[in-house]
């Protein structure tokens, strides 16, 4: 099974996941174990990973042809005169908002979930 002449083959086991910041008491473990299998959470997680992948890939976010697009809002410029609400920018914003929303929902269902470092909890509406 080892064709690299003694060099160690990489194990199929992924590196150990970082443990949650606090350890749950034993009797809770079955409970949270069951929650990770919650199909709703799995669906949210899947969408979250998809969004992260799109955002990190740097791919064109809006590849609809010119004619199929809806009208743009009025342009907004920053103080350097650069337009900031480009199609690309708005598409990215949209994905970011959805991402934050999904993270909020996961936290609601599983308070032990450790959100990514750049997650900002939504401001409470008055």
């Amino acid at each position: 099974a080892d064709q690299n002449g003694g060099k160690k083959r990489k194990s199929r086991w992924a590196d150990d996941e970082p443990k949650p910041v606090f350890q749950l008491p034993d009797f809770m473990k079955d409970f949270t174990g069951g929650m990770d299998m919650d199909p709703e959470i799995q669906a949210l997680n899947a969408r979250l990973m998809e969004i992260s992948r799109i955002l990190q890939s740097g791919q064109q976010l809006d590849d609809r042809p010119e004619g199929a697009r809806s009208p743009s809002p009025d342009p907004i410029y920053d103080n350097m005169g650069t337009r900031i609400n480009t199609r690309e920018f708005r598409a990215r914003e949209r994905l970011n908002r959805e991402r934050q929303e999904i993270i909020s929902q996961i936290i609601k269902r599983n308070p032990a979930f450790k959100p990514p470092a750049d997650y900002r909890p939504p401001k409470l509406q008055k």
């Binding site: 199929r12 086991w13 992924a14 150990d16 996941e17 174990g33 299998m37």
Partner: peptide, 15 residues
């Protein structure tokens, strides 16, 4: 069970 559940093996999430 505690150490393996949820780990990934070859991309599959272990139950």
């Amino acid at each position: 069970r505690g150490g393996l559940n949820g780990r990934k093996f070859g991309g599959n999430q272990v139950v």
